[in-house]
Amino acid sequence: MTSKSVISASELSVRIDQRTILDNLNFEVGKGEVFALLGGNGAGKSTTLKTFLGLMKPSTGTASVMGMSVAENTNEVQKSVAYLPESVTLYGHLSGYENIRYFLSVAGVEKTDDAIHEALNKVALQENAWHNTLSNYSKGMRQKTAIALAILRNAPVLFLDEPTSGLDPAAIDEFNSLVSELANNGATIFMVTHDVYGACQVAHRIVLLSNGKLTGSFERVGDTPIDTEAVHAAFAGRK
């Protein structure tokens, strides 16, 4: 792990019932970097994410966040990161505003109403929906609520699970802008996705994961997005 890396995997392996899910992963993610782990179904993306979130323990090797071993400092790591699940699962009986208040309270983060309103405005959630119960929200609106929560957590590290899945193109653009803005402000973003186009648009680096192994890496040069065709070819196994 370099001194600048915020997230790192060192010889990280996870085995469940004699089956190798992650096989000797090694990578580092720097501060302010948007890192995309790209892979198909069953590649091991969710297991990687769960290991970094402290929901699974590595069989061998280390998953570290901000210099702390996740397995050994699970609670400290969880307090320093924000997580955006694939299907945003907030409470249907609460409003977007109440969901944010509750999760902030569980995380031990105190925020004023103004700060919450600012975050909701930032993610462009319509004001008239703030106090409606979540059961009336679209997937995009739920996604925005969860991002507002992540922003309010002031977490230096964000883990995103298939963040653009199910969003319409306009919402994806809004989301990508938001991720870029967060990264520019110094947040380190680790996303797992199978959306090649979306990853190329927003990521500084894309790493391919197949059958639990890292099989390729693509890096953005300057402001030019990573070449979608090249990544797609590698992802589809044509290269």
Partner: peptide, 14 residues
């Protein structure tokens, strides 16, 4: 079942 368990645990709740 609702998936909120993951979110709760990743907020730092043990």
């Amino acid at each position: 079942e609702a998936g909120t368990l993951t979110l709760l645990l990743t907020q730092g709740a043990s």
